[in-house]
Computed example of a mutant assay.
Amino acid sequence: MTAADDPAGHGRLLAGTAWVVLLLGLWVWGRDLTDGSGAGSAPIAGDIAAVGRPLGIPLPPPHDPIEGAAPRRIEVPSIGVDAPVVARGLDEDGAIDPPPFDAPRTVGWYGNGTEPGAKGPALFVGHVDTETRPAVFYGLSAARPGAKVEVTRTDGTVAEFTVDDVQVLTRERFNADKAYGPRRKGRAELRLITCGGTYDRASRSYDANVVVSAYLTGERPKGNGGS
C-alpha cells in the first residue's frame, strides 16, 4: 500500500509538515515577499546551527543574480535528490500548501515568491517521510556546505547553487527571518526545508525543521555539464 492509499500515511505527512508550512506561509504573508516511526534515522535532532558552516570550507564566489524563471526540477547529487518541482500557493489560512500527499517524491516551490536565480531567497519545501517510507527530502539533514544544488528552469537553463549553511531549527527557537530571509543582501539564494528533530508519536509531528541555505554560483544551458 502506498502513502497515497493509506489514511495514516496522509496524517503523517500532514502532521510532519503542517507547522513549518504554516509558519512559512504566515511569514510570507506578513512580509509580502516578492523579491514515522520514520523509515529510518535521517531526521536529526539539534538546535540552531546544528551543522552550520565548518571553518575552513572553501566556497566559490557568488554569481550575480540572473533573470528569474520558474523551476521544473531540482537535483542535489550528494544526497540523491532528483525530483520534479511543482508551484504551490497559499491556502485560505495563509499557509503554503505542501506538495500533494500522493506525490511524496515531489518538491514544492512557493510560486508567488522569488524565482530561483533572481535576487533573494527562493523557497522549496518537501516531505521527509511517509508512514511507511522515505520521501524526497529524507536525506536533507546530510547535506553539507560545498554541496551542489542544480535547478532546471522553464527557460531551458540550469541555475547552479552551492550550499553554505545547514541548520536545524527547533520550534522553541524558531526564527522565520533566520530561516527564510536573505543571508546576504543582493545575492540569489534558495532554501530547502523539511521536517527534522524528534518524531513524537502522540502529536504525530516532528519538533524541528532542517533548513539548508544555498546561493547562486553559476548558470548553464540545460544539457551542458557543470564545472
Rank of each mutant, 00 (worst) to 15 (best):
A143D: 06
R183Y: 07
D164P: 00
L192A: 04
T152A: 10
T162I: 11
V168E: 01
L190W: 04
V158A: 06
R153N: 11
G139H: 10
P134Q: 10
Q167K: 08
L140P: 01
V166E: 01
A142Q: 09
P145I: 11
K178Y: 13
F161Y: 13
K185A: 15
T152F: 07
T157R: 14
R171N: 11
T170H: 02
G186T: 03
G139F: 03
P134F: 03
A143Q: 09
T170L: 00
R187P: 03
G196E: 11
A143M: 14
G186D: 01
A147T: 13
D165T: 09
R144F: 07
G139Q: 11
E172A: 15
Y138A: 10
R144W: 06
G186W: 05
R133T: 08
P145N: 13
L190G: 05
P145Q: 09
R187T: 12
A159T: 09
R144M: 14
V158Y: 05
G146D: 10
D155T: 10
R144Q: 14
T157G: 01
A188I: 12
G156Y: 09
L140A: 04
V163C: 08
Y180F: 15
F161I: 08
V166M: 06
K185C: 04
T152K: 00
D165P: 01
A188R: 11
E189H: 14
A176M: 02
R183S: 13
V151S: 02
D164Y: 05
K178A: 12
A135D: 01
G146W: 06
G146Y: 08
F174N: 06
K185H: 14
P134C: 04
E172C: 07
Y180H: 07
A135H: 05
K185G: 12
P182R: 07
L190D: 02
